[in-house]
Design a protein around this nucleic acid. Sequence first.
DNA 1: CGGGATCCCTCATGATACTG
DNA 2: CAGTATCATGAGGGATCCCG
Lengths: 118, 118
Amino acid sequence: MKNFHPDNNCPVRNVLCRLGDKWSMLVLITLNANGTMRFCDIHKTIADISQRMLTVTLRTLETDGLVSRKVYAEVPPRVEYELTERGKSLIPHIEGLVDWALQQMPGIMESRSQTGTA
Amino acid sequence: MKNFHPDNNCPVRNVLCRLGDKWSMLVLITLNANGTMRFCDIHKTIADISQRMLTVTLRTLETDGLVSRKVYAEVPPRVEYELTERGKSLIPHIEGLVDWALQQMPGIMESRSQTGTA
DNA sequence: CGGGATCCCTCATGATACTG
DNA sequence: CAGTATCATGAGGGATCCCG
């Protein structure tokens, strides 16, 4: 019997831990769709994220080497974010998931309504 | 500028909402790896999930039509779970993510240690 | 054995205010 | 503009008890 214990190096746990949060994937696909973006731009694009969570999310992605952060020493501070190569390499997999979601959503919605559970 | 607002039908939000929780993907790949499983078996395979969360997770997956639940009217109750066709169709995408995680984990770990963030 | 119901607690997230 | 710091919250999840 195959299992996926949390013990040590389970990649599933690891990837879910990092990408399964509320915002990471959203930030990644946003950056992928728009290229280099400033903090404010990302914030405007993902309107319902708080400033704090955007900062935290970007920092985590930067720590994992998925996003690069470039600070310009200007008077109105400017910081630009973009996907790293590693970040870009993840995009197809996320899009695979998104495509699946798009295809299955109607059936899933129907399934949900049938069982009566919200 | 492309964005992904939460407004109505954003599949990203939807799929993350359902699969980005702590256990769903784990249950899915466990069922995929082992085929039909009893409640107890799943619980033993994913040792650190609470009975409650396993129940909740399975119910949600069942509601979305990703997992089927078969109850046998026997004296020691027996309930068997297995992936539906829709559930199986999701597996490749999850595995894509897992494979990516496996490949990138060393680099990510290195990246994390460099920035000094845990 | 499978799981429903309940209580409780922690952590992730949000809101606000302040700084360089 | 791009954050940091602080405080408040509520939903997710764990532990326990009970039932068919």
